[in-house]
Each structure stands twice: as structure tokens, then as C-alpha cells.
Design a binder for these strands. Sequence first.
RNA 1: GGGGCUGUAGCUCAGUUGGUUAGAGCAGGGGACUCAUAAUCCCUUUGUCGCGGGUUCGAGUCCUGCCAGCCCUACCA
Length: 691
Amino acid sequence: MNQRKILVTAALPYANGPIHLGHLVEYIQTDIWVRFQKLRGHNCIFMWADDTHGTAIMIRARKEGRSEEEVIAEANAEHQRDFAGFQIQYDNYGSTHSDENKQLCGEVWQSIRDAGLVKEKDVDQLFDIEQGTFLADRFVRGTCPECNAEDQPGDNCSKCGTTYSPAELINPVSTLSGSTPEIRTAKHLFIELEQLHEFLEDWTQTGNHLQPEVANYLRGHFLGDPQSAEGAKPLRDWDISRPAPYFGFEIPDCPGNYWYVWFDAPIGYIASTQQWCERNGDTLDNWWKNDAAEIHHFIGKDITYFHTLFWPGMLKSAGYSLPTKVHIHGFLTVNGEKMSKSVGTAFKANTYLDHLPPAALRYYYASKLGSRLDDIDLNFDEFISKVNSDLVGKVVNLASRSAKFVKDTGLSTSYPDDGGLFESAASAGDEIATAYENCDYNKAMRLILELADKANPFVENAEPWNLRKDPAKAQELQDVCTIALNLFRQLVIYLSPVLPDLAEKTGELLNDPLLRWDQSQTPLTGSSVAKFKHMMKRIEEKDVRAMEEASKIEAEQESALTDNNSEQFVDSEQPMIDEPMTDECTIEDFMKVDLRVARIVNAEHVEGARKLLKLTLSLGGDHRKQVFAGIKAAYEPDQLVGRLVVMVANLKPRQMKFGLSEGMVCASGPGGEEVFLLTPDEGSKPGQRVH
RNA sequence: GGGGCUGUAGCUCAGUUGGUUAGAGCAGGGGACUCAUAAUCCCUUUGUCGCGGGUUCGAGUCCUGCCAGCCCUACCA
């Protein structure tokens, strides 16, 4: 077999947050593919890194009062800890905030400049004056200019679906500071992608670099179809720079401006390779400028655009190899629903590992992943039954039901007649390998489990538990177990990209490490057999529930911390229970009550009164009202003077112990310290009636 | 609004270039076994292949319209 040179990447985890089970779909998918290639004997390296630049990191560092470097160093350590926990093996883990990356970005940039692809344009963008920074769309909210829905995101309206620029929002508010941003004009650099149109049309539509639906998507949405009546659509210019302040690399020939994070992030793939090369005495050109080396990217469908248009364009301009293939996967849903941080279904890697084994998730994902972009669903009932039934019940069961019978004798010295079972399973290897190669892991798992379904009946019919009762049948017993253990070993080799842990334990059991795919083609004989130990635990429902519970609690704690402007309004029902709705009234009834805006012009304690404050309210001009209000426990007189309130102005005056009260001040709350005065919005004037 | 993908048994999905009575696993029902982590083995029930048209000797498969779901719609990670 020809040894291939294969460089693999997964999307770079963003250094602003923990890894959750959604991310792991991709990382496990990638790891399985890399392990598979290595098992097949290919020269495969997995180059990975943290994505560290951009506004989000900058803002977070500011909020936490520390440097960006500290934030990303912490994230890096956490990420690598989680990956180790899930047995994800990479050959280098770098950072986009590295010297190598800065250097490479400069080189790529220069070649794009030289190719005449860069131009300057002025861009109007909202600027947060308090924070001193330009605002990306997602940091702005405001009223939709189309339908007037309030509190909408900066790029499109969730009510009417209109898309707009944040500068068009009515009453825009910065979510960073709560202040009102202003529009400022700044110079931005753009890459004229359209100049590469023909190249991108060709690269995306031919050569099998992309899944067919992705190629269609790009043509339908961005490139247009040169053969169709509409013809090709021009590609828009790509805004590649951000003015200071920005956490990233400053553009050498454009001081005060930084590369947009999506420029330097994919170059991080190359920078990570650079680090690996330096450590291993290899050269970058050997991998990135070599037709004999394959380059495979694994990404989620959300970042398709960047990896299939910008990235090939950048590589092409800079003279690097183009991706052999971009493997794109769908998202993870949990019990059929979109993952949600607030509901607690965005399970963190760490939380999962506190309660459940990594192998279970690796297998479950493998059994669901196909080569297409469909979302996959994590359903815990299915998860439990699949892992237990397939892995423990069928696969591991083969070893646990036969190994102990040959603990003292070891495997037979020659492989007995098994009716062709081993041979047919060996020849299924090619089809399984093809499925792995094509990322059809669900097909691979199905094929492997079919083999397990043939192996168990063999043991059933051979009845080793009866053979061992008759000393005369010792050889037959050894032969049966030799067959069972070889079929088991074969399955484990096929499964080893998914279940490296099981492969290792099987190697120990049979005294023969499993390192190469072709070990599945030859039976193992004469080997000693170690004492059988549990290789995999059944998943128990209580552990899953405990994990779900833990995640829910984490989510609640987090939302308690950051819940200032969240979209969910979950209010207690208690007030309505305490004071149920009164009987219906007519508008005439309501109009009898003359509510007025009033200004508190004086407030003082009343000697001898436990609850009351004496307020003097102005309704404008000379109109003054004296009111005794039961708000002493909640307000200090000083705080009240000058503020506007709502009062019942035509209430029949009432003689109280301390004087005449000529109205009421409106407030809510049960009383005592919990009294809350109503405040009219800014702009209202004393004397105005409330309708 | 535009676009992409999906819709096959209760659940998760296979169904190759259109070709006999549409398949698997799980779940359900019945039985067997007891070596094995209440694991295993045998037998077994279930389908207007989203809906309506069309092409064809023949359509789950091709074309078309509709319905439903998911996703994308670029300066968002």
C-alpha cells in the first residue's frame, strides 16, 4: 500500500469559552479519522490550535480585568485537558496568537497585496464611546427600522426577518456598556474576492473537494451559475481589517488596523504545522507546498463560507496547496432540540466526563455520523441502549464469555476451522475502511456490528460452558475460545479508531498490541491470555441523569451571574396570588380616578409616625398637594426630593392624625421595606394626567 | 424574500446506475440457554416509502407542484 501524507485539521476552538458536546462531534469525528489513517499506516498529522483573536476575547479580558494573554492561556489549558479526557490526539496544539502565525500572516498578506487584491473603503460602524471600541453586529441591539420591534439584534430582526446594518437601528444600544453608540467612519481594507471568481468556481465545482450539497450551496448562493440565464454573481469584497482597539495582529503596512480574526485563524493551521515541523525536523513546504501531501479540513456547516471561498482564495494567492477536501458536518441537537445554554443542554465536556466514560460518546457519535451535513441528535435513551447493547452486550461480551476458559492454556497454536467466519470478516475490512475514509462512520459501525451478530451465535452453538465439563474436550474448548477471541480481536481492530481504550485493553488481554489495520487479516495463535478484566462498564441511567442535573445547576449558576439583559423573563406568580385581580371596571370607572404626574418638592419625617412620610407634591405652577405616604421604611426623605411620581390627585382629602392628606402616591409592593414608587419616564411634566 | 438539505416500521437509520413479495438495529410479543456486565441465542408483529400529479412495461429511486422540519442568507464565533 502506498503511504499517503495526510495533514488534518479541525476547526480551531475559540479561546473564549469551554468545550461542550456540540464541539466534540467535530473533534471526535476528526480524531477517529486521524486514528484510522494512522492505523492504516499512513503518515498522518493532526494540526490544531486555539483561535484567540477578536473583539469577544478583548471584551472578556477587559471585564475580568486581566490581559488577553491570560485569558487565552487559561482557555488553552482547559481545552487541552478536555481533549485528553476524550482521548483526542493531535500532533501539535498551537495558538493563533503565536510568533509563527504572525510571521505567516505577514507573508500571506504580502502576496495578496502583490496580487493586487486589496483595496481601501470607508465603513460606517457604530462606536461605543464608553468602551472606546467599534461594535460588531452582535454587540448592538435596538429597535427594528422596519417593524419597530424592540430589542432586536444588530444584523436582522427576529420578528419580521428584515436584514439591515446596525447603523440603521432605531435607538441602538451597546450591549457592552448599555450606552448609546454613535456612527463613526473608519477606513477598512477589503479583499476583492471577485478577482478569484473563476478559480473559485472551478475549485468548488470540480475535483470532489466538497460534499455535493455544499458545492450546490456555494453556487446557488454566492458564485451563481455561469451557464444559467442569470449568469455568475459577483462575489462581494471581504472586509479584512478592523480599526484599533482590536485584539489581534496589527497590519504591518497599515498601522492602527488589525487583521480580522477570520484572516489569521485559518493561517493558524499552517502556523501549527510550522511548530510541528520545527520539533520534528520537517519543513513546511513538505506539507503545504507539496502536491503529494493531502490536506483535509474538518469543520461545521456554520463556517462553510470561510473555508470554501476565503480560505482557498488565500491559499491560492499565497502559493500554498489547496485543501484536498473540506469535510463538513451538521450540528448537535439534544433530545431533538437545539442545544441551549440556559436550559442546560449545552453539556460541557468536563461535566460529561465527571459522570460518563468518553468511549460511550465516541461510539455513539460514530454510530450517528455520516458523510453529510445532517444534524445529529443526542438522545439519552438511545445513547444508553446503543452503547450497552452494541458494545457491552455484543462486542465485549465475546471476550468476557470466552477468555477465562483459556486463561491457563492460551490460544491454540494453529487457527481452527471456524466455518469461514474469520475469513469473511477479514474481507469485510475493505468496505469498513472505505466507510471510514468517506466519513461514513455510521455505516462502518453498522458493518462491524453485523460481524458481531455472527460471532455471538457461533459461541452459542459451540457451547464452551459445556465443553469445559468434559476433560476429553479440552482441545475443542481451546479451539472454540481461540475463534471467539480472534473474532473479538478483529472487531476491536476495526473499532480501534473509535475506541482506542478498548484496543489497548484487548492488546493486553491477548498479549499482542493492536497497532495496525492489517492485523485484522491474520488470526492470532499461540498467544497467552491474561486474566479477564472488565473492559467497559454499562451506562447507567442514573449517571446520565446526574450529568443532566449537574449541567442544569451550572446553567442556573451562570445565568444568575450574567442575567442582566437576557431574553428570558421568568417572573414569579406570587404577586398575583397575593393580590388577585379585582373585578372588571369600565373606562368610565377608570376615568373617575385622576392620576397626575407630580414632583416631590419636599419630604420630611413626621414626628411620632412609624410608617409615614409627609410629602409636598407639585403639580406645576402653584398647585401643591400635601400627602402622607406610608413609605418611611423604604425611602429616605432626601432621596425623594425632586423626583417625579404618579399621584391620585382627586382623592377625597382625608384628615389623619398628623394632618390633612390630599391624595395618594402610587407604588407597588407588599409594604414595609418593599415599597416601590412608580416613576414616569423622562420627559413627562408635573401636572400631566395619566391615561 | 431567496437558497440548501431532509421527510422510508414506535425510535435511529440502510436502500447502490429505476427492476421480483421494501430492509437492519433498538423497542414490543413468544420461547431457549445460563459461560457472560439482568448480557446471549432462536422465532415473531408493524410500513398509503410526507401528499398530489407526471415520465416509464415498471418509481422509495427520475421530473413537477404542494406540505412539514432543520439550516444558511457574508464582515457572526
